[in-house]
Structure formats: C-alpha cells, structure tokens
Design a protein around this nucleic acid. Structure first.
Lengths: 158, 158
DNA sequence: TGTGATTTATTGAATATTCAAGAAATTCGT
DNA sequence: ACGAATTTCTTGAATATTCAATAAATCACA
C-alpha cells in the first residue's frame, strides 16, 4: 500500500479546499443572480455557444461531464423556467434535442458578465499566465485519466 | 467588462471538467466502499487525525470548508452509523464536540487504503513532482482568495 | 428478417445540500 | 450588571443529485 507523501498530502488538502470553496462560491453567486446552481448555468452556457444553440441530451451530458440522469432532472427544471425546450431528434427516435430558447439565451447574456467576473476574481486575476497554463495542463491530465477509466475498458466486466 | 482570454477560457473549461469528473469519481468510490459520500469521509478522516479524535462543530466545518448547516446534517447521519457521537462542550454550553467513535476510526482505517489509491490513481500517479507543487500553490492562491472574500469584509454591508 | 444486446432518455425513491429561521449561550459596550 | 449584538448549532422545507429500474428505439449479426 503506497500512501501519499507529505507533499502530495498537502497538495491534496489544498486542492480539496480550493475546489470546495470555489464550488460553493460560484453556486451562491449564480443562485443569487440567476436562481440556478452553477452546473445549470454551465448547461445554458454550453448550449449558447453551440451552433443552433441545441444539442442532443447525451452529447450535452458528455460535454458537461454529468450523468444523463442528472441532466434529465436539470433540463426538466430549466424547461420550467422557459429557458430550454425539448424537441424530438429527427434522426433517432430515441433521442431528444435540448434547445436553448430566446429567453434562455437572454438569461445567459444577462448573467454572463457577473459570472465571468466572479471566475476572474476567484481564479485568473490571482494566477500568473504561467500558472494558468500549468492549471490547464494539470486539469487535462486529471480529466484524461478519469474520462477513460480503466475499469470501463475491462471487457470481462461487461 | 473584461472577458476571459482564450487561454483562460480553455483552462477554466479543463479545470471544471477535471473537478466535476473527480468529485463524481471519488463520491462513487466511497459510496461503493463505505456507503458515504466523499465529503463525509473527509469529516471522519479529519477527526481521525486530530488529537483526541474530536473537534468542535464550527472548527470541523472550517477545516473542511463546509457550512455548519451541512455539517449538522452530515454528523446526524454519521451518528446514525455509529461512527461519530456528539458531546457537550465543557467550556461553552452552546457548543458541541464531534467525537469519532472506535467504530468510526475502524471504518477510516478500513477504507483509507482504497480511497488513497483512488486519489493517487486519479491525480498524483499522473502528475510530476513539479506539477504537484504547482497544483498546491495554485490551489492555495485560489483558496486564499475565497476564504477572505472581499464582500464579507465590507462593513457597510453588515 | 429476427432476436438479443445496446443505446437513449426518463422516472421515482432515497439521499444530500442549501437556505432561512430560530433557540440558547456568550460577548460587547456602557 | 444589563441589554443588544453576536456566536453556536440545529431544524424543516425546498431543491438537487444519485441510484436502480424502466420503456422505447436502434444496432449487431447470424
């Protein structure tokens, strides 16, 4: 059993603290300004940057790294707000396309500046360009490792 | 209004993906192996490393960066598992001391190896020592900025 | 073509988190 | 010492997330 070195332990603690505080902070900021959690905003934002402002459910779940179940619940809620609507997928009758409404797009436009400011203030105004590059690379490595988890590629488990 | 540069946007996206996937991964791992979410494990782990294996509620909330309300609910649940118990604080009758039980300590000992392995596999086995140092420094900067939020220090808002 | 496996998306129940409110004890300022 | 303000912790309701199960459509391929 290989434990964490002192350096790793201390880095892990710092990382946990940073991510816990950041999530909490952004959730609060967006809950206050838009009435939705951060992840819901990320859905709207992702759709707003997509050609056609729409995406298949599974594709949207993959891009935002959340489960389909979570996405279904979230989209149901956002649909209630009138910020998103579902349409049948023309090429696959199992599929649903999640479409950002004009109201949803307007909501992103309205709240984006405040959100970006919060992200800047919490992160990029505090990091050097070099650190920003480092953070991106480190994040890529971690995400890469989790996106193709070993266990999911073991044939005999399926 | 100052937007994010391309480098910042791309770093932000990568960071969000990494943290979302990581949280999800660790929650699943601990839910499977210990029946509790990652944050609950962090509470037990923090207590297990504290002299006396006990801590005031507020202190525990601060160390783990969660709200007191969340901690109250979490401790109530862990108390139900028999892994923690509450005692009255001898020096402040408002206070409660959260004590890790022997069963709770045993549970940490039992599940720590699997958890550490998961953390290593996701993060430290993939990062160079240099990147580990970078991650710690970046995390410190971010956490530092959020722990003393400007708005909380503005007297006329209180 | 037909059939079993897979993919897509949703649902409801169980669990977790947030938020606002509140009770009790302590501290502050005079 | 007194009352107002603060701190500590909890609670219940509203919301969000996970998990397992499900239905429907498509795919793989003999």
């Amino acid at each position: 059993m290989k434990w964490l070195t002192d350096e790793e332990q201390s880095a892990w603690r710092a990382f946990l603290h940073a991510t816990t505080l950041l999530e909490d902070h952004l959730d609060r900021q967006l809950q206050r300004d838009a009435g939705i959690p951060h992840m819901y905003y990320a859905l709207l934002s992702t759709l707003s940057e997509t050609p056609g402002r729409s995406m298949r459910m599974t594709e949207l779940a993959e891009q935002t790294k959340i489960t389909r179940s979570r996405l279904s619940h979230a989209v149901a809620r956002l649909e209630g707000n009138g910020w998103v609507r579902r349409e049948n997928c023309p090429t696959d009758r199992r599929g649903q396309v999640c479409v950002l409404t004009d109201e949803g797009f307007a909501e992103v436009e309205r709240t984006a500046p405040g959100h970006v400011t919060a992200v800047r203030a919490a992160i990029f105004d505090r990091l050097s360009p070099e650190q920003t590059r480092q953070l991106e690379e480190i994040s890529r490595v971690i995400a890469e490792g989790l996106h193709h988890p070993a266990s999911a590629d073991v044939p005999w488990q399926r």
